[in-house]
Amino acid sequence: MTTTTTTIDGRDVHVDAEGFLTEYDEWDEALAVSLAAQIGVELTEAHWPVLRFLREDYAVRGETPTTRRVQAVGGIPVKEQFTLFPKKPGKKMSYIAGLPKPHGCV
């Protein structure tokens, strides 16, 4: 995987060819707000439990949870995920959480 650097709101971060962050530790909650703005999502209180679950689950398992897992383990219903991150929740929430795209099929 080729990585490069890009500047988001004045911060240099490592990203893959599509723009997903590749360094777990370069992310913080302030950056999440900037990442969300880049893709047209305005973060509210309801978004944070999803993002925090993604971060914690990735730290333990080493892979980004799917929408199914965010519901089954994280307790956030799929329907709510679609409301918070419209149309492509799996990709959008992982982008904002500074993680790779989920690779699970379900």
Partner: peptide, 15 residues
């Protein structure tokens, strides 16, 4: 001089 940031293109309008 600042290049545009590299951001995934989710192409919401093209779905």
């Amino acid at each position: 001089p600042a290049p545009a940031p590299i951001v995934p293109r989710f192409d919401d309008d093209e779905t």
